[in-house]
């Protein structure tokens, strides 16, 4: 009888130990699980940031490509130069509104620009700040942009090509796929 009690007590003790072990194992598994989730979240957010940066750069490259389209570019010798006389004419042509599948396309004078924000027209050019070629929605968000040289024919003296520093901005569905 005493032996039976002893065996039963031992069994109970063993069961308790197994239960304790099981609980500890489960707790450790949960703990490691939480740590793994946290680590994955941190590394995935870094990856997401890198992808967004890459897409932003691609969108800016695409904008740069738009600036070298025949409708904008100045001549073979000047890669990255925009002909502002062409841009002004382009603004007036309504059939170009859907040509690049963009919602917004503008060219801004950065330097020299004494805080000029006026929209450029034939009458006030070059004493103006921005030429908006396409503005379909009004809400442009953060457009992709690229630095360019804005060149125009000056008729003073014997005539020469004068280049300013500017930026070309674009936004639209065709750029959204690349993050712009």
């Amino acid at each position: 009888m005493i032996n039976m009690r002893k065996i039963s007590k031992k069994n109970n003790n063993a069961q308790m130990k197994i239960q304790e072990m099981a609980f500890v194992l489960v707790a450790i598994m949960i703990f490691f699980g939480i740590v793994a989730i946290f680590y994955l979240k941190v590394s995935l957010s870094n990856l997401k940031g890198n992808v967004e940066l890459q897409r932003g750069q691609e969108a800016n490259e695409l904008v740069r490509k738009i600036s070298s389209a025949p409708e904008f570019y100045l001549n073979k010798e000047c890669d990255g130069c925009i002909d502002m006389d062409k841009v002004l004419l382009l603004k007036e042509r309504k059939n170009y509104q859907g040509f690049w599948n963009l919602d917004y396309l503008a060219v801004e004078v950065i330097y020299p620009n004494s805080n000029k924000t006026e929209e450029c027209t034939r009458s006030n050019f070059p004493n103006c700040g921005i030429v908006t070629i396409i503005n379909k929605t009004g809400n442009t968000g953060i457009p992709a942009s690229a630095f360019v040289a804005l060149c125009r024919q000056e008729f003073k003296q014997q005539g020469y090509v004068k280049c300013d520093l500017g930026k070309i901005y674009a936004s639209g569905k065709s750029l959204e796929s690349t993050g712009g």
Partner: peptide, 15 residues
């Protein structure tokens, strides 16, 4: 940064 390099290239074309 390509953007910075483009900026420098465009700056060099300024009159």
């Amino acid at each position: 940064s390509k953007d910075v390099s483009r900026f420098l290239e465009s700056t060099m074309l300024y009159t």
